[in-house]
Design a binder for these strands. Structure first.
Lengths: 227, 227
DNA sequence: CGGCGATTGTCCGAAAACGTACACTAATAG
DNA sequence: CTATTAGTGTACGTTTTCGGACAATCGCCG
């Protein structure tokens, strides 16, 4: 069922439990899927595109703490028996998702322990992603964090072209825009990527992995738990 | 029951469900409560002292991503239907905990939805803490991150004296040791802390909060969910 | 009391990232 | 086809942090 990593791995019964509530929706660029401190109304199982979870300090600009694509879902707070989170989630690269009301999800995971377990396991891999972001932010330089981000985005799209601007990337990483431009050029010089206007093409994944030291842990955890 | 923030807020029945399995243990400095990639054998509900969750890059030194004290528990991965995590958890400031086998916890949370919900809610506040660490690591300078760490530690101890060395703090924050010494002196000059050998005394919590811009979100979330 | 190890203070040059400004260039609209 | 604008390249001095070294100091043990 679906091209979503969580849904496609559900058992037949769990699948049937959700199906009546799922509705296909488009995810236009910039659409807000969750707002900080506001009740979560809908859960999105992404099929295409990328959403960012962004933390804002009290006064200052935000920084991305998590990335969600076709492997995952939004609204983990609901799975964790909460109903909101202090962070914002919005569409970074347009796509589609299957959407369902949070209240329905809450009921379904009470009915099916295996369904709940699936969501919790994804939640665990997301937790590892958060920790890995904290590690990267604390110990890696821009070039390395950029490589990590590109790899994570690459995992979540079709093809090798990631369409976004340096400006956006800078916002995500919480650094200056010229810092991103410089780092990208370094990666290009090493033959790891190519740059077009508004787009980056991944040409050497393995090379990027060597550059980015913090990539891999969440991905390994996801695979361990789902395969 | 107990001085642990989670346990003390459980309902009577949930309490009785856990009590037979809990055993009081000492937490000596440096004790490893979880090892990266290894099966989690025991869950610890801290009563006193502080444990650190540390992420290590493949080759390099680690960095702290989370802090656990009397408000919380270790072994969240088990609650998330996993059995291990890629990160290490060890005792940073000695204390005591109530300890139970992971297998028992797994069974109890299947028996009691309300018990599971309690753990999940704590898990949510911990997720927010991870995100907040990622924010601080990405956007704050050493002095600000240090203020945040001191506040988080202060929340988890009795009194105002935090006993540890600059060296340890540097490891936690993922920065150089002299960087910590310098930042501490800045905080001392502002009258926010006092320094003894191997110890730091908090003298102005509110002042520290002003310095540390990333403090507060996880704490607010914990309070919202538990009170 | 003297010595020793652990802890902290201080300094150096170098690297990384900052904030800001401005020129250039490609896509787009009129 | 030109004018406009978003996106990118580049440059400046400054701040922050790094990596490493070394001196000073404290607490403890013999």
């Amino acid at each position: 069922m679906s091209t979503n990593g969580i849904l496609s791995r559900l058992s037949r019964p769990d699948c049937l439990l959700l199906e009546p509530h799922l509705e296909k929706v488009r995810l236009p660029l910039g659409k807000r899927l969750e707002r900080p401190g506001r009740r979560i109304e809908h859960i999105y199982f992404l099929q295409r595109g990328i959403a960012s979870v962004v933390a804002d300090g009290p006064d200052e600009r935000g920084i991305e703490v998590g990335l969600i694509g076709r492997e995952g879902m939004t609204g983990l707070a609901v799975v964790m028996d909460s109903d909101r989170s202090p962070y914002e989630t919005f569409v970074q690269i347009e796509g589609e998702a299957l959407c369902m009301p949070a209240s329905n999800l809450r009921k379904r995971i009470e009915e099916s322990p295996t369904l709940r377990a699936s969501f919790l396991r994804y939640g665990h891999s997301f937790v590892v992603q958060l920790a890995s972001t904290a590690l990267a932010n604390g110990r890696s330089k821009i070039e390395e964090r950029l490589a990590r981000w590109l790899l994570m985005a690459h995992d979540r799209i079709d093809g090798d072209e990631i369409a976004l601007t340096h400006e956006l990337l800078a916002l995500m990483l919480g650094v200056r825009r010229p810092g991103v431009s410089d780092a990208l050029k370094l990666l290009e010089k090493r033959g790891l990527i190519q740059m077009d206007r508004r787009a980056i093409v991944i040409s050497d994944r393995e090379g990027l992995k060597k550059v980015s030291r913090a990539y891999g842990a969440p991905e390994a955890e996801y695979q361990r738990l789902f395969d």
